[in-house]
């Protein structure tokens, strides 16, 4: 497996400075100052529009004019452009059915599994007539990109693109999807630290699944433990430093020598 650099996902949800460590609950009043604030993500006006209340259990965050609530629990909603880890659960001659940890199964059509070779006139030189779903088996783990997703239709997937395709080795673990930004960290700080210290390849996807592979089983185990620790302590501050300390302490143990 060639060394793949994890694309740093720009997700500033968990920016340390701006986020307060204030835990809010559904229905809790975030502010009564409706002239200066607008409800952002996870917040809503009440009926009289004189209060802003929270929608879910999470951390309160004030960003310019917006009041957001960063959820601590929740489910994954597919978004076009997301790269996610999918497992093929069913297939027929027309399409694969993939579990992407969301409400609907994703659909992977065979024409989206081979790269399009453009001809001279911009036409496809390859015909899709003979393409069938023989490339992958049921149970294969793929990294796919979501082409389209909305509330009503099933998300459409593709395996054509950078980093995408089948994973033949490694371990897949899954955590709560809202905690994924914390595993990545601010500008990818957490994931860089994990990679450097444990010498493992990691691919973190937005649907809560994490693919990892290391040279040494002890390091893999350490990394899995660290990721679960991050997930359980996602709402605390100074997490990156604490995790660094934790991993360094663990590495002093005998199995790493």
């Amino acid at each position: 497996m060639e060394d793949k650099e994890q694309e740093v996902l720009e997700d500033d949800d968990f920016e340390m400075e701006e986020i307060s460590r204030e835990l809010v609950l559904p229905g809790e009043v975030l502010t009564e100052d409706v002239n200066n604030f607008i409800p952002g993500r996870g917040a809503i006006f009440n009926k009289e529009r004189n209060k802003i209340t929270s929608l879910c259990i999470g951390l309160k965050q004030i960003k310019k004019k917006y009041i957001n609530v960063i959820p601590l629990r929740g489910f994954y909603t597919p978004k076009a452009g997301d790269k996610v880890l999918a497992v093929i659960v069913d297939k027929n001659p027309v399409k694969y059915k993939c579990d992407i940890n969301s409400k609907d199964f994703g659909q992977l059509k065979p024409k989206n599994t081979i790269s399009q070779e453009k001809g001279r006139m911009g036409r496809n030189t390859r015909s899709y007539d003979d393409v069938s779903t023989e490339m992958y088996k049921i149970g294969d783990v793929l990294i796919v990109k979501i082409l389209s997703a909305d509330r009503l239709n099933k998300p459409e997937l593709t395996t054509v693109g950078r980093y995408l395709g089948m994973k033949r080795d490694g371990i897949v673990i899954s955590i709560d999807p809202p905690k994924i930004p914390r595993v990545i960290g601010r500008n990818g700080s957490m994931i860089k630290m994990l990679k450097n210290l444990t010498k493992c390849n990691i691919f973190v996807t937005q649907n809560g699944r994490i693919w990892l592979k290391g040279d040494n089983i002890a390091y893999e185990r350490l990394l899995i433990g660290a990721i679960y620790k991050i997930a359980s302590e996602a709402h605390t501050s100074g997490l990156t430093d604490r995790m660094k300390e934790y991993i360094e302490n663990e590495k002093k143990k005998e199995e790493f020598k």
């Binding site: 996870g42 601590l72 629990r73 929740g74 489910f75």
Partner: peptide, 11 residues
Amino acid sequence: LADAGIPMRSL
């Protein structure tokens, strides 16, 4: 329901 992270107006 609140523990599941489903958006709710209140408890």
